[in-house]
Amino acid sequence: MPRMILQKVIPLGYAPVLALEGYARRSNDRRTYELVKIRASALNGCGYCSAMHVRDALAQGEAENRIEALRSDWRALDVWSPAEEAALALTDEVTRLGESGVSDTVWNAAVEQWGEKGTGHLIIAICTINVWNRIAISTGLEAADL
């Protein structure tokens, strides 16, 4: 049982995050959107969000071997399109966000594959899942709560 259902306790604080999520969902390629969500959730150790996005990706026909690769070294599996590789590399660097931020190599690959606007949409999706991961983990949401 979760510690708190945030949307019930502070609905006015929860609503903007939900609105940002809606924008991210509408603005990104649906398949890539789920890959990004699964990858960031794996990096953050969020079982709740991982379970949700794995379920959604499977319902859309995503291959189980690709989903499994997102939980470890996705680069070891040679099944990604150049656009997916760019999105996943961007997800890794935005989620881990070290002192130097996102490298020029990753940034340039994302812009080359997705364009400036598409890269912006990906950043919103990546940032939003990072917010959801932190909400789910801190409030104690688990996959069984889905």
Rank of each mutant, 00 (worst) to 15 (best):
A63Y: 08
V36M: 12
N65S: 09
P11A: 05
R30G: 10
S103F: 09
P2F: 01
I129D: 06
A42V: 03
R39S: 09
L70S: 08
W107F: 15
C49S: 13
V17T: 07
V94H: 06
Q7R: 13
E34R: 11
L12V: 09
T32W: 00
A144W: 07
I10W: 07
V9K: 02
L35I: 06
G120K: 01
V79L: 13
V79I: 10
I67T: 06
I135H: 02
G22Q: 06
W107H: 15
G13L: 11
E112F: 06
R25V: 07
N44W: 03
C46R: 02
D78Y: 04
L12A: 15
I38A: 09
L141M: 15
L70V: 03
C49Q: 05
V131W: 10
Y48T: 02
P16K: 01
A110F: 10
L35A: 07
E34L: 12
L43Y: 07
T139R: 00
L43V: 10
E64Y: 04
G140T: 04
K117T: 15
G61A: 02
A109H: 13
E85V: 14
A109Q: 15
W74Y: 10
R75G: 00
M52K: 06
A144Q: 14
I38E: 07
S100Y: 12
M1Y: 03
Y33N: 09
W132Q: 01
L35G: 08
A110M: 10
E116F: 12
N44T: 03
L35F: 15
L70R: 07
D29W: 04
A125W: 11
V131Y: 03
V102G: 09
N108W: 00
L77P: 00
R55D: 12
N133H: 08
G120I: 09
N44G: 01
R26D: 14
L141C: 03
S72M: 03
E62F: 03
L70N: 07
G45S: 03
I124A: 15
R134D: 08
K117S: 13
A125P: 11
A89Y: 03
H121K: 04
E112D: 15
E62Q: 13
V111L: 07
E21T: 13
N65M: 08
V102W: 09
S81N: 03
G115M: 08
L77E: 05
D29R: 02
A76C: 01
R66I: 07
D104C: 06
D56G: 01
I135K: 02
W107E: 10
Y33K: 04
I124H: 12
R96C: 12
R3P: 01
I38H: 08
C46M: 04
A143T: 00
L12W: 06
